[in-house]
Every structure is written in C-alpha cells, then in structure tokens.
Design a protein around this nucleic acid. Sequence first.
DNA 1: GCATGATTGGAATGTCAATTCCAACTCGAC
DNA 2: GTCGAGTTGGAATTGACATTCCAATCATGC
Lengths: 211, 211
Amino acid sequence: MSTPAKTGEPKRQRLTKGGRKTRERIIEAAAELMFHRGAGGTSIPDIQAAAGVSASQIYHYFGDKQGLVLAVIDHQTDTQLAQQRPLLDNLDSIEALREWCDRAGNRQDARGCEGGCEIGSLASELADGDQSARTRLVSAFDRWEGPIRSGLARMQARGELSERADTAALATALLAAIQGGMLLSQVRRSSTAYRQAVSAVIDHIESLLVR
Amino acid sequence: MSTPAKTGEPKRQRLTKGGRKTRERIIEAAAELMFHRGAGGTSIPDIQAAAGVSASQIYHYFGDKQGLVLAVIDHQTDTQLAQQRPLLDNLDSIEALREWCDRAGNRQDARGCEGGCEIGSLASELADGDQSARTRLVSAFDRWEGPIRSGLARMQARGELSERADTAALATALLAAIQGGMLLSQVRRSSTAYRQAVSAVIDHIESLLVR
DNA sequence: GCATGATTGGAATGTCAATTCCAACTCGAC
DNA sequence: GTCGAGTTGGAATTGACATTCCAATCATGC
C-alpha cells in the first residue's frame, strides 16, 4: 500500500524567522475572513490582500487552499480555547459555569451577534465535504468538551454532584447548547437565545446537585 | 424614497401548470444539492443537471441564484415542519417531546449522520452574508419554535408544568439543543451527542413538572 | 564570504461559474 | 385557430478563482 496522496501538506521545511511570521499573518487574515464569509466564501486573492502577501507565499506555506483551511481550523481551536482559559479549566461549580457562559454571551453582544461560534461555523460548513477537516473538527470539539467534563467530574468526585449525573453527557449537552444557542443568536441578532439555551442546561445541572 | 432594488425576485407572473412543475423540480433539486454541499458549494450547472432543466429556466423562475436560495429556505422550512407533523403540534407531554426528538435522531442515524439540520445548515452559512436570507431564517425558526412553546404552554395551563417554568425560554433551549446536537452529531458521525443534548433539556423540563 | 535552501513577486494558465441574450416553441384564452 | 404571454434551449459573455511557474532575492549554517 503506497502513501495516500495527502493534499494540503507542503513538505516539512525549515521556517526562517520571517517565514514563520508570514505564515502566521496569513493564517490570521484567513481566519478572520473565513469567520465572516465562510471558508468557501473567502478567496485566495481576498487573503492575499488582507495579509499583504503574494499568491506564491500562500501556496508555499500551505500547499493549497485546503491546507490553509486545515491550519485555520487548528488556529481557531487554539485561539478560542486559549481565550477561555483559565475559566475553562475551572468549571467545577455552578457559578463558574454561569460566569464562563456569560462571557461568551457578552462577546456575542459586543459584536452585535454577527457571526456565530468560530469553530461551529467552520464545522457546519466543512463537516460533510472535507474528511480531513472533519477529523480536525472532531478533535477541536473534544478539546473543548474535555475541560467541561473534567470540571463536572470534579464536582461529582467531591460529592457535590449526584452520582446519578452522567458528566460526559452533561458536558456534551452544554457544548451543544452553546453551539445551538450561538446559531439562533446569530440568526436572530440577539444573544437571548444563547443565554436561554445555556441557562436551561446549567439549571439542569444545578438540579442534580446533592442537597 | 424609491423602491429599494429587490434582488432575486422575478416579476410576479402567471405560472402555467407545467411551469409550476418545473419550478418545483428546480427547488427540490437545489434543496437536495444545497443540503449536501451548501448553497455556495452548489452551482447553477449542478442544479441544471440534477433537475434536467436549462439555465434560462432557472433564471426565468427565480431571477438569480439568491432568489433560488430564498425559495430553497422556504421550501426546506415547509418540508421539515410538514414532516414533523402531527407530532410537532402535540408536544404537550414529556413522552411526546421524547418521541418527537427521538424520531429526528433515528433519521440522523439512518443517513449515517451525514448532513445536519436542513434549516440549521443553511442558517449557519447564510445568516451573516445575506440579509434577506436571514429574515427568512428568523421566520423559519419562529415557525419551528412556536409549536414547541405552545405544547409547553398547554402543559402549564393544565397545571402539569410548574408556574415558574418559562415556556418560551424552554422552547428556545430545546430548539438550540436540537441544533447544537445535530451539529455535533454531524461532525462526530454519531447521533449520541444529539440524543444527549435533547435528553438533558427534556430531563430539565421533566424536573419542572408539578408533583 | 559562500553555498544552499527559504522566501517572494508577479504574470500566465486553465477552468468554471453566474448571468445574459435571443430565437424558437407551447399553451390557453378569446 | 390565432395571438400574446409563458416556457425552453443553448450559445455567448464576462469575470473570478485556484493554481503554477520562473526568476529574483534573502537568510543562515558552515
């Protein structure tokens, strides 16, 4: 069995200091554009203009457009998770959960509810058409859900959360509420739906507290 | 103030029997393609081939691609809601809610979890870039959420659901769980996330039952 | 300082999409 | 059956986009 043709992967090469910087600049410009217009709606010329680079630079660093899209997925995942820390790593109380979700709601309001979730939007667009993108999105959601589950598990280990609670399922449900809530908020241009969605799930978790 | 330029609207004209049929055929082919590849990922030539029509027919009936996209949104809304009836109009018990959500989960399994929600996917793609599409999507979600809210309201009116329950917020939360759950299921290729998401919200509603 | 590979610019290529145009055809009302 | 509106085919137009190429420049390890 021969090596399957891997698209979007330029041969591993040494990057010079300036090279790394150019690469980053391209990813950031692409991420920004793709957040607003989608991956399919963002052209290479668009990215060239936004990043101030030539076409050859993009193809030099990413091989092809798909390669760039994959890099953007990973970049958005890293960026969004980093932005949520340290809160994300301390979701072991109802108050912490509410505070964390509330922040995302405020961010959504701040941008006028334009655009949904940076990861979710890419997921919706790319999950079906691009196998390698889907794989990275699976990993993105896993990396996001993990800390939520851990926080709930800690509450349970401490005896604060009922033994009957399925912490993994609750973490998934909360992530789903965030995604669905963001989508409804984006469409309705109001964060209310997001807040109601996450609030319902957190209320549910609260009802599972011991005592 | 002059009439704003309305894109995508062919002049209101009488449609002959065959014309109506052609129009329907185009919408259905477009809806199917756009469900799998997105609106942006579906070209007019694609639709021509799938529907067996010429380009002039598409432009004759829909004005331009945006007009067709709007028609597809409305069509998917009508189709999806029709498919959920009569269950959708009788969501006034926990069992009815579970049965209704379960069906969607089974449909998702049946298609191997490829594709998410017919409306949600379009929403994610079009909400930001296309004002008239967003308006129709608002209406689509409202038409969907209404019957959910009504069912919950009936439960509350009958005294089965606590007075403290905010039926409107709960309906939104359930719709958000469906959307977010579908997205995670689509990415993970497993309906588990969907089922956990809706289950959490329905469990929450159940905990608000009187008694 | 030099060799080698990294980086960059910018034009060229080929494909394909959206849309327009016009001529031909069909159907239904009178 | 005839006339006008509704319908259809298919070619032509225009523009954008992904990608490639080549030649030039730059950085760095030795």
